[in-house]
Simulated assay, not measured.
Amino acid sequence: MNDLLAALLLGIIEGITEFLPVSSTGHLLIAQHWLGHRSDLFNIAIQAGAILAVVLIYRHRLLGLLAAFVGRDMRAPHDPLGKDVRPAQVREYGFKLLLAFIVTAIGGLLVKALGWELPDTVRPIAWALIFGAFWMVIAEQLAAKRAAREGERTTISWTTAVLVGIAQVVAGVFPGTSRSAATIFVALLAGTTSRAAATEFAFLVGIPTMFAATGFELLSMLKDGGLGNEDWAALGVAFIASAVTAFIAVKWLLRYIETHRFTAFAGYRVALGIALLLWLPSGS
């Protein structure tokens, strides 16, 4: 297959799956068995392309956060349920995003220092897809029961922020877990019963996380002199494809969760995981 076409397909796969709770890393690892292995920089850069789409979608929210921190007299952003929030609340929300990012950064550096890395074979990804599906259903059921008892809660607590940061590290260590699924459902289990609020926090904290990961990988390759080996044309094609498809996928998901639960995604994960276990050799 033409290398640019393969890169285009990988970018599309990344863009569709990065923010849906189905594991973009798992889908990319599976796709690369047929489309060819890519460098760590390629894989992280196309994730950054998907993050760029989220920056565009949440640009007003991000500008509101910036305005609250610099003290501009600017209309505060709305929470996911449409209620007005005060600048002080916006600043606190921003500090919680920062806390989640710091926890992720420290955890990620610790993981790298200890050399923790699971094999990127399909079988463990399949099991992660299946177990993650059950985790999603349980988390959403518990959140629904709590919402029925206490009403819908959109607040992100400090504890939730820490747990979301840890969830990002866990998702990075276990391919197939899904960063978006891990963070959304940790937030739901930690007391945020609103799917919209949990999803927004998960997506926003992914912005500095993925951009930092891309920058870290780029600096590492600069230090090792590995940038000359990168196919920049293929990376550029994949980056643009990822950004465009992620923009469409996230817009669709945000509308979908207004009236639907995540059950369909759990069913897809189970079906894909079982198919992989049945159809692929045990050593794949």
Rank of each mutant, 00 (worst) to 15 (best):
A7G: 01
L8R: 04
L8E: 06
G11Y: 11
I12K: 01
E14S: 09
P21A: 09
S23Y: 08
T25R: 06
L35I: 03
D40P: 12
I51R: 09
V55F: 13
L56C: 12
R61I: 14
L63G: 11
G64F: 10
L66E: 00
G71F: 08
R72H: 08
R72I: 07
M74D: 09
M74L: 13
P77M: 02
H78Q: 13
D79I: 00
L81M: 13
R86A: 14
R86C: 01
G94H: 00
A100T: 04
T104A: 15
A105D: 01
A113L: 08
L114I: 09
L118Y: 12
R123K: 11
P124H: 05
I125H: 10
A128P: 09
F131G: 14
F131K: 01
G132P: 04
F134H: 01
V137Q: 12
Q141Y: 05
L142A: 12
L142P: 01
L142K: 11
E150V: 03
G151A: 06
I156P: 04
T159Q: 12
T160C: 14
L163A: 11
V164C: 11
A167P: 02
V169Y: 00
G172L: 04
G176I: 00
T177Q: 02
S178H: 06
T183N: 08
V186C: 10
L188I: 15
A190S: 15
T192K: 00
T199P: 10
G206Y: 08
P208Q: 00
P208H: 02
M210A: 14
A213G: 07
S220N: 11
M221E: 05
D224A: 14
G228Y: 12
A233S: 12
A238V: 02
F239R: 02
S242I: 00
I248Q: 04
K251I: 04
L253S: 05
I257W: 01
F265C: 03
V270G: 03
A271L: 14
L276E: 00
L277E: 04
